[in-house]
Amino acid sequence: MQIFVKTLTGKTITSEVEPSDTIENVKAKIQDKEGIPPDQQRLIFAGKQLEDGRTLSDYNIQKESTLHLVLR
C-alpha cells in the first residue's frame, strides 16, 4: 500500500509499505529516498509519535495515510 510522509519543508515523500511493516522499516525506506538517518527521524501520526518496534497496523495506519516527519 502507499503512504505519504510529509516533511517540515512541505515536501511529500510517497512510500510503498505493508501494514505489517515496522516503523523502523518505514524509517529505513525514508533513509533510502532522502538520506536521512533513522535515528534523526521522528514520525508522527494523528498527533502521536510512532515507536520503532510497532507496526503500521498497530497504529491503524491505512493506505494513503499521511505521516509527518520531524527531524531531531
Rank of each mutant, 00 (worst) to 15 (best):
I13F: 13
Q40N: 09
T7V: 09
G53L: 08
E51C: 10
K33L: 14
G53E: 09
V5E: 02
S57Y: 10
N25Y: 12
E16K: 09
M1S: 03
D52W: 04
S20L: 09
I23W: 02
L50P: 00
Q40Y: 09
G10D: 04
E24C: 08
E18C: 11
D21N: 06
Y59P: 00
P37N: 07
S20V: 05
K48D: 06
Q41T: 09
E18L: 14
L56A: 02
Q31F: 15
L50D: 00
K63W: 08
D39K: 10
L67S: 00
L71F: 09
T55G: 02
M1F: 15
L71C: 07
A46T: 05
G10W: 04
E51S: 07
K27A: 03
V70K: 08
G35K: 06
T22G: 03
Q40L: 11
F45R: 02
M1P: 03
T9M: 11
K6A: 07
I61M: 03
L50R: 00
E34R: 05
L67D: 00
V5A: 02
I36V: 08
T12F: 10
L43Y: 03
Q49W: 14
D21E: 09
S57T: 08
K11F: 10
I36W: 14
K6Q: 10
Y59R: 01
G35R: 06
S20N: 12
T14L: 12
F4W: 07
T22I: 04
T66S: 05
P19E: 08
Q41N: 03
T7C: 13
I23V: 10
K29N: 06
P19N: 05
E24M: 13
Y59N: 01
K48H: 11
Q2M: 14
R42N: 11
I36G: 04
K63I: 06
T66C: 05
E34K: 05
M1E: 03
T12S: 06
T14M: 12
K48R: 11
I44M: 13
I13A: 02
E18V: 13
Q2C: 10
T55S: 08
V26D: 00
T9G: 13
D32C: 08
D39R: 11
A46K: 14
Y59G: 00
I3Y: 00
F4V: 06
D58G: 03
I44P: 00
K33Y: 09
T22N: 04
L71H: 07
L56T: 02
K48G: 05
K29D: 06
T9L: 11
R42S: 11
V17P: 01
K63P: 15
K6D: 03
I36A: 04
T55R: 10
E24I: 11
H68Q: 11
H68W: 15
A46C: 10
A28E: 09
V70R: 11
I23T: 04
